[in-house]
């Protein structure tokens, strides 16, 4: 990857984050959705009595909320390109398509990670989970899970850019593809949240799995983004 690739990537991500910094529209919507999902789950599961299921539930809720809020970010960040056909001006610029993809991936991932910080605290409070027992591992799993989800999400969101019911279709198309990421991330997180877990060996396994999935998804994304966004 050349220096200009990274320059274009940072330019495009910077543009998306600058727009978000002005409107805060995506962050507020994501934050509100995240709080709502965690609250609904905490009410629904308040009578659960098996303490052994606690970490699994907390991890599941954390990743379910991440996926829902991530879908909001993906839909809106790509939607901004559709307004005024700004995407056409961007595609006509010398920026390589792969850098446009990488810029979008970076912007969406950063927005998701910002909301995940709030989510982790909320899950810790409402599910009495030991969310900060292994902060380094948790940060790594959040990063890899987010990248894997956003890597496929940017491609699908770009493919649905001109579709009328894109927000409904995005979840329907994206969630099945994101199952490996969701599975690995929630298993690793459940293990980290469990104070009775003997060691972190399963976490290391799932982190390696996430890393491999991310590499595959990102390479596929870089490869297919051009035909997808060109609509050919």
């Amino acid at each position: 990857m050349t220096g200009s690739f990274w320059r274009y990537t940072l330019l495009i991500a910077g543009k998306d984050l600058r727009i978000e910094g002005k409107s805060r529209e995506v962050l507020y919507t994501m934050g509100f959705s995240a709080a709502l999902v965690v609250l609904v789950f905490s009410f629904a599961l308040s009578n659960a009595t098996d303490p052994a299921q606690g970490p699994i539930t907390a991890a599941g809720v954390l990743w379910a909320a991440t996926l829902f809020t991530g879908t909001v970010a993906l839909a809106r960040v790509l939607d901004r390109e559709r307004e005024n056909e700004a995407i056409r001006a961007l595609l006509l610029s010398p920026a390589p398509r792969a850098a446009i993809y990488a810029g979008k991936l970076l912007a969406v991932s950063l927005l998701m990670l910002a909301v995940e910080v709030v989510l982790v605290v909320l899950v810790g409070l409402l599910f009495s989970a030991e969310v900060f027992a292994h902060p380094g591992w948790l940060a790594l799993v959040l990063l890899l899970g987010t990248l894997g989800f956003a890597a496929t999400g940017v491609v699908f969101s770009a493919a649905l850019l001109r579709s009328r019911s894109r927000e409904a279709l995005l979840g329907a198309l994206l969630f099945p593809i994101a199952i490996p990421v969701l599975l690995a991330a929630s298993r690793a997180t459940a293990c980290m949240f469990d104070p009775l877990a003997p060691d972190l060996e399963p976490v290391a396994f799932w982190v390696r799995f996430l890393l491999a999935t991310d590499v595959i998804y990102i390479l596929l994304g870089l490869w297919v983004f051009e035909p997808v966004v060109s609509g050919e």
Partner: peptide, 18 residues
């Protein structure tokens, strides 16, 4: 050749929040 082309469509290709 994209460096040599300028394009104006019926939609302006402008980011409305900037």
């Amino acid at each position: 050749a994209r460096q040599t082309i300028g394009y104006v469509g019926h939609e302006p290709g402008i980011y409305p929040d900037l």
